[in-house]
């Protein structure tokens, strides 16, 4: 921290000011002049919160994607299909058992098993051929998309959260102050989204801990740096590959349940989330979990603020972030050369 301050005094100042402005925007009631130019504070806060929770969902999808990519140099373009499959499985389980939490576990396990099957039956046989592996994942995604369309049809599905998560909680943030009475009114926010956000943070922290503090994490990180050297030092790299692929795929399945709960499941969502994870990973840096978190947050916020403040150009905003990152830092914000 201190080293960063000493090395980049100007940047530190900019970041400090930005954080201060952001805190003021969130905490303080807006003066009438602000409300006139930017709209009501409630809209801003909602966009901010929605952006952060959407970012959390993107992080869940993209972290598996980036983990698989980082270790195996395999761009798994079937990742969106795994997401959608996880969502559908979660829907069926919730309908069948009535347990929302069980659907997470089962979706994770089922999609992870599919990931293992893919890795063992297909990708193991074409190691080192990056392009071919990627082409295979395209084929897998087309086949999976059509089979899912076959089974579940083109309807929209939504996973219903349990009763204790339905409804809104009142946050201690002032959304507006009544001009007549002077009473502050507080922002209400859907409970389920907050829970999902905290769950994503917990998963992120656990992943960080696994990668940085455990033996398997050391192996994975070594594999990202130099997988030949890792194999030469006696680690059973195929096993590491299978574990990582299963875990990444399982995360996509889990994210499918999350996405099915606070958005909806339909054909086409697979491609949407594949693209979201592509952009997140390009912006954040390939193979970096922290990068995925940062990218997901940026893209989620950009999408939500874009759709609130300039609806026709929301997509372009996301795209411009990607272009800017590519132009100035091709390896991504936190990526390494």
């Amino acid at each position: 921290m201190r080293r960063f301050l000493e090395r980049h005094p100007l940047w530190s100042l900019v970041i400090l000011v930005a954080v201060a402005v952001l805190l003021w925007l969130i905490l303080a009631p807006w003066p009438p002049g602000m409300v006139e130019t930017f709209g009501r504070k409630k809209v801003f806060l909602n966009a901010l919160f929605n952006g952060i929770t959407l970012g959390a969902l993107y992080f869940l999808v993209a972290s598996g994607f980036t983990l698989i990519f980082g270790l195996m140099r395999n761009i798994n373009l079937a990742h969106g299909s795994l997401y959608l499959l996880g969502g559908y499985i979660g829907y069926e389980i919730t309908e069948w058992t009535g347990s929302w939490l069980a659907s997470f576990v089962i979706a994770f396990v089922a999609v992870a098993i599919l990931g293992i099957v893919l890795q063992v039956t297909i990708f193991r046989w074409m190691e080192g051929q990056d392009l071919r592996q990627t082409l295979v994942t395209i084929g897998v995604s087309i086949v999976m998309a059509d089979i899912m369309l076959w089974i579940w049809g083109g309807d929209f599905y939504q996973i219903l959260p349990p009763d204790w998560l339905v409804g809104a909680v009142e946050t201690p943030l002032i959304s507006s102050i009544s001009r007549r009475t002077g009473d502050p009114s507080y922002l209400k926010y859907p409970m389920v989204r907050l829970v999902i956000f905290f769950a994503a943070v917990v998963i992120g922290v656990v992943m960080w801990w696994l990668l940085n503090r455990t033996r398997i994490g050391i192996m994975i990180r070594a594999g990202v740096d130099d997988r030949d050297m890792l194999a030469a030092s006696g680690v059973r790299i195929q096993l590491v590959f299978v574990i990582v692929f299963a875990f990444g795929a399982g995360l996509a399945g889990l994210a499918g349940v999350v996405g099915g709960t606070f958005q909806s499941l339909a054909p086409g969502e697979d491609i949407r989330f594949l693209l979201a994870s592509l952009v997140v990973v390009i912006v954040g840096g390939m193979g970096s979990i922290t990068g995925a978190a940062l990218g997901a947050l940026l893209i989620g916020l950009a999408e939500q603020f874009g759709s609130v403040y300039m609806p026709t150009y929301a997509v372009v905003g996301t795209f411009l972030i990607m272009v800017a990152v590519l132009a100035f830092r091709p390896q991504g914000l936190l990526g390494r050369k």
């Binding site: 390009i282 026709t312 372009v316 590519l326």
Partner: peptide, 28 residues
């Protein structure tokens, strides 16, 4: 834009550009 990165990354970036064009034309 795409040549700023290499090999397998090109697929990702061009796919992202293509989808941005698709969503943009659909919204505009």
């Amino acid at each position: 834009l795409a040549v700023r990165t290499e090999g397998i990354y090109t697929i990702m970036i061009t796919l992202a550009i293509a989808s941005a064009f698709f969503y943009f034309t659909r919204q505009n």
